[in-house]
Nucleic acid binder design. Sequence first.
DNA 1: GCTCCACATGACCACGTGGTCACATCCCCT
DNA 2: AGGGGATGTGACCACGTGGTCATGTGGAGC
Lengths: 219, 219
Amino acid sequence: MPTSTWHNLDPARRERVLRAAMAEFGRHGYSAGSLNVIAREAGVAKGSLFQYFADKRDLFATVAEDTGLRVRAEMARYLAGPEPGQSFADFLCDALDAWVRYFAKHPLERGVTAATNLEIDPEVRAAVREPVHRLYLDALRPLCELARERGELAPGADLEALLGMLLLLLPHLAIAPFEPALDPVLGLYGSDPPSLREPVRRVVHSLLSGYGVAPTPSR
Amino acid sequence: MPTSTWHNLDPARRERVLRAAMAEFGRHGYSAGSLNVIAREAGVAKGSLFQYFADKRDLFATVAEDTGLRVRAEMARYLAGPEPGQSFADFLCDALDAWVRYFAKHPLERGVTAATNLEIDPEVRAAVREPVHRLYLDALRPLCELARERGELAPGADLEALLGMLLLLLPHLAIAPFEPALDPVLGLYGSDPPSLREPVRRVVHSLLSGYGVAPTPSR
DNA sequence: GCTCCACATGACCACGTGGTCACATCCCCT
DNA sequence: AGGGGATGTGACCACGTGGTCATGTGGAGC
């Protein structure tokens, strides 16, 4: 947790520190991210960082959580669910498209999302990812349940599995389309960066409607 | 690329270096992995590492590629596709189940897979992930095409999207079930580690048969 | 016995790290 | 005016890093 000093801080100064940290951690990840660089870029003495945060991890956790909140705020208009008359599938397309476009326009948030999801140290992951995951789940589960109540998902649909796939897909869609053809689903985007909507539709369509064959039911 | 010295090396010594590197990179990832530790654990002078590899990245890339080959060798029996009379869905369940069980039994390979997939530095990622991705795609695409030819996937099925999801799912299934309840799909495994088969079936079923609704077709 | 060469070794290097701390500066309160 | 707590600062610390290199070792060929 950040110190009280951090909360009392001049907002402009706080913002400078935050943005510098987002940029540095976003570029190099947690363990390779340098506090020296962050302090320099923020125009702040390194000692100050330790007056605001207990240690490096505390800073990173704060950056990650703050970023999660920024993103959720940006997505607020989708948290209410589909517009009247809009199908769940179309809604999902819209939301994911907005999601991708948001990260296209906000490289800092994209970097932090990458750093958060690509962190390997289990302790750091736990400290940083768990709250963000809860943020996502709290937003997504009601939407899926609403869709099922409305009869837009098959009554027997495995909501947990769907949530799992979405939670896998979301960070991927935030990061992958903007890296040089490294990732699988991202490959769909690579060729035509200005129009991201069509690839999103393909993914959503395939995810929701399946591939035309069902395995033998369980048990 | 490793030096010629590396290839001429006493296999036992080579194996010791390799396993030490797998363990270290697997635990701490590339950038936080320490050559000092690797040399010590392998029982080898640090200078020797630089007689085998150009630099740290070279070592890591070698470890990653070697691991990829080990894994593929282990999965060899699934590369031929379904047994006669076996459905594609059942085959996929079997293969993914074997996949998960393999990584359950091989923590070193699991660690390296984690480190490979969680690397954030774009240059390192490119050097390390691209060959492994090709390995996966070369194995998976023929299987999917075979399934479509056999009529086990809908003729209009979006094979690229399916491959994308599989390529997203595979590393996840290799890593997530063995971390403390951190990840979405992994959550399915958490409670009942000895029997992993049922969760795999749920994921495959949902992936292949969808959730009972289709978005408006594209265009 | 001698040369030669491939390889092994660990002391050593310059550097950047996360973190500390004694001191300076500021501003509110009396 | 001046005391005092809160905040800012950067020199400084011990340490670990990736990487180098002069020296040592051992065995094959003459």
